[in-house]
Design a protein around this nucleic acid. Sequence first.
DNA 1: CAACTTGTCTGACTGAGGTCAGATAGATTG
DNA 2: CAATCTATCTGACCTCAGTCAGACAAGTTG
Lengths: 284, 284
Amino acid sequence: MLSTIQVLRRFNRTYTQRIGVLDESFLGLGLPLSSARLVFEIGAEGAGVGDLRSRLGLDSGYLSRLLRSLEERDLVTVEPDPADRRRRTAILSPSGRRLLEQLEQRSEDLAHRLVAPLTERQRARLSEALGTADLLVRAATVSLDEVDPAGSRATAAMGHYFAELDRRFPGGFDPGAPTPPDSFTVATSDGRPVACGGVQQIGAGIGEVKRMWVDPAWRGAGLGSRLLRHLEGVAADAGHRVVRLDTNGTLSEAIAMYERAGYTSIERYNDNPYAELFFEKALP
Amino acid sequence: MLSTIQVLRRFNRTYTQRIGVLDESFLGLGLPLSSARLVFEIGAEGAGVGDLRSRLGLDSGYLSRLLRSLEERDLVTVEPDPADRRRRTAILSPSGRRLLEQLEQRSEDLAHRLVAPLTERQRARLSEALGTADLLVRAATVSLDEVDPAGSRATAAMGHYFAELDRRFPGGFDPGAPTPPDSFTVATSDGRPVACGGVQQIGAGIGEVKRMWVDPAWRGAGLGSRLLRHLEGVAADAGHRVVRLDTNGTLSEAIAMYERAGYTSIERYNDNPYAELFFEKALP
DNA sequence: CAACTTGTCTGACTGAGGTCAGATAGATTG
DNA sequence: CAATCTATCTGACCTCAGTCAGACAAGTTG
């Protein structure tokens, strides 16, 4: 029986040899690979230069040069951002958009050719396997960052949380004027918040986990328990011996997860009108 | 519901962003990536230069230069093959073998770090998904080549076939002095024959599929039916209207496959002492 | 054994990909 | 408003990766 790591390494070799070419399908349209990738990354909506730099992990000088060469070929226009004229935004020109379509097409053709020898049933198996692998690999590479509890990343993530509560609670949800917790963690994947949660002191040696949320598309990938473990670590570092949390009966997945994580039901400890269930766990 | 192609393309993006780094783990040991890959490919047992060329898909001049640079660093020795002194074989020196170990270690560490955030169950799911994807991707990218029926590739593949018959038949198997068929197809993956089969005229408009074999590790991936379809095409191109084949009752997987492919049982049409069952299919 | 084929090597050259050290223009802050 | 910081750009430079043409030695064939 092979270990996950052996399977992963074996797959990696298979993959780079055979599917890796999907990327190189960008070649042959008269553009070097990195320029083609850049066109792909700018996309139909355009993107900020700094944004591109971080997404592609390129040196600022190098990226600048790539953009200049795309401009010379009339594929891209770069314009200053009106709000902050130091920043610039790259947008595809009409011919750039045509090129993007060709790139998409080629990549699709190649994918098509790759699965062509498989029967319908095998394709379905492959789809399912790759879909599972995709979710798990994404889940494994989500980065958990502690952010400023009053900053924009925290606010944006909390927005998703409040919006979901509002959708799920029969009478809607009114966050009022929320006070930021002592510490706030955001889980990000591809630049988007996919989960979040805060920790706040509510008594001597007692921390509370607040505003914990996981994007619905990401549930079942273990992200919730990972985040919860992380938040318990944050609480422990802050000197708490116990963590508590409250929740609403509607949020059944969350409740199941708290129980799996070793939380036990306790009496009401606050006057949160939306809370119906209360949990506690002693930190090791 | 996403199509296989969409899933594949999505996975490809996830993958190149996150696992693609497994390869670059070869960097940082003072060797450029291609040299490191070459050391990896030479492996502990050494490898022929031509073999390396085809496995890595490199230009002969480029490969030669890479080998020279590894020789200069005392990582590799290249020696002529005693049987054919044009051919040369690359072998790792002791320090080359140490380097290979370091490369393996790094790649393993990286894979380990990647799966570390997953729970045991998730890792098992990932293993299974990647294993399935690996088999299917390999099966999809096997290349079917028509080779010289009397050449070395055909002989090597047939050797596997005869060896398996010898293992499986109660009284063993004696191929005698086999005459090469009119046409022979070998399916190759990573330079190894994984399946083969020949077509021979045995009457006016009648072709026979002979010596068809699929590597046991590859059964269940649809390779057999794909090869059979290919051989039927070869027979049709040769002007045959019907294909026949004979087989032994021991080879139950093969028999099931012939039936699935639309073959029907017929009377004995030859005096092959090992054959017990006879099939026929009309070509469209 | 002459003519060919095959396997590897050498030399000359190219472009992609990337780094680093400033320069410059716009924003922010005391 | 001077000083500082930030986002981007320019110029100089370097290595890696790869191609192509041809040389050459060893093997094969008529």
